[in-house]
Nucleic acid binder design. Structure first.
Lengths: 196, 196
DNA sequence: CGCAACTAGACGACTGGTCTAATAAAGGAT
DNA sequence: ATCCTTTATTAGACCAGTCGTCTAGTTGCG
């Protein structure tokens, strides 16, 4: 019934994610996804109104998950805001530098390709990245208060600077296929956070 | 004859660039490119061995052009290295924030999509970005010497930090469709260059 | 039983990249 | 100038694959 409904829908999304992380959005056909998920084609259009709507759902789900993970890092009270901040970027480095699909960043993979292709998917990306940025900025301001981070003229601006840098580093990692770009970002981050 | 040969080939590349800048690599068919260029389909495989080889040529040509433009900015002796540096990033901001296709950045558009798709295109991107980084790092070190920029522990590291930030900012610009991300990058850049 | 949710997969109309076979052009030799 | 060879260029066939539709069939709950 309803739980089954959600299961199949979710199963399609879960199966699709690593495939799309590998090949992108346009280059993957529904066939490939559906045979991998053992779901017949007829079902797909029962759960999603179109490939585009499916892509939007994929992103929406991705960001929901991501924000949860983010909160579990940022809401710990066992560490200073500075330590939490550093832990976040360290986890970014690890997840993006290893070859494990599924852990990789959908934002980096799809942003450029999809933003010009679909307004609704661009909307998902926009909302998702704004949420992310808000959480980073919040943690920075907490760091100002608990003294674990320096005082910034503008937390939003600093959060944006960091996020931009890590997005770019992840993009370069796709080109380089090594950790160098991410490690450089880590070093710069330590410096910006004055935690080196 | 031979000059004609190169002309047609070049004409295909020139026509393709804005189209691919808009839709990406996989989502664009040869048909669309070739009809736009008024070149029959059969001719394509006379000039390029495959779509992938064509993509590689596109990137190769793009970076060759880009490096020329870069050199024309960086080799001016009328300005300090710091001013040249700032002029470069300012031009990045302008070209990437306006809607004008053709001026936009192929690296940002294609890196994520293509790096996992084609080794040869990834190779082009790798060589191109390394050239770019080398030029930026060189300009930074000239700035150290002529006193227009601060002394950096490592010019390559700083160049990489800046480039990563601007790549990320450009990616975010595709999502946001406004100048905010690039302007934030500009502000951070001024700060890093100590030119604010 | 009835009605909804869901599955099955054939089908249509089309586009994808690739390749072979035919044509056009060019160059050289007589 | 004419013929022949050789290369440059093109037309279109080819088939696998695309997204999306649609009808039949199955399942399961009230």
């Amino acid at each position: 019934m309803n739980s089954e409904h959600i299961d199949v829908r979710q199963h399609i999304l879960d199966t699709a994610k690593p495939i799309i992380l590998g090949k992108g959005f346009s280059a993957v056909g529904l066939n490939e996804i559906l045979t991998a998920a053992n779901v017949p084609k007829g079902s797909f259009y029962h759960y999603f109104k179109s490939k585009e709507a499916f892509g939007e759902a994929l992103l929406e789900h991705y960001f929901a998950n991501y924000c949860e993970r983010l909160d579990s890092i940022f809401n710990t009270q066992d560490a200073t805001a500075g330590e939490r901040m550093l832990a976040y970027w360290a986890s970014w480095l690890e997840t993006q530098s290893c070859d494990d699909r599924d852990g990789q960043c959908l934002t980096v993979k799809l942003a450029a390709e999809v933003s010009d292709l679909s307004e609704s998917m661009r909307g998902s990306l926009l909302r998702g990245t704004e949420q992310l940025l808000a959480r980073i900025a919040l943690c920075l301001s907490e760091g100002e208060r608990d003294g674990s981070l320096p005082h910034y003229a503008n937390c939003e601006q600093t959060a944006l600077q960091l996020y931009e840098m890590w997005l770019g580093a992840t993009l370069l990692t796709k080109i380089r296929r090594d950790r160098s770009a991410l490690e450089a970002a880590m070093q710069s981050t330590r410096f910006i956070l004055k935690m080196n």
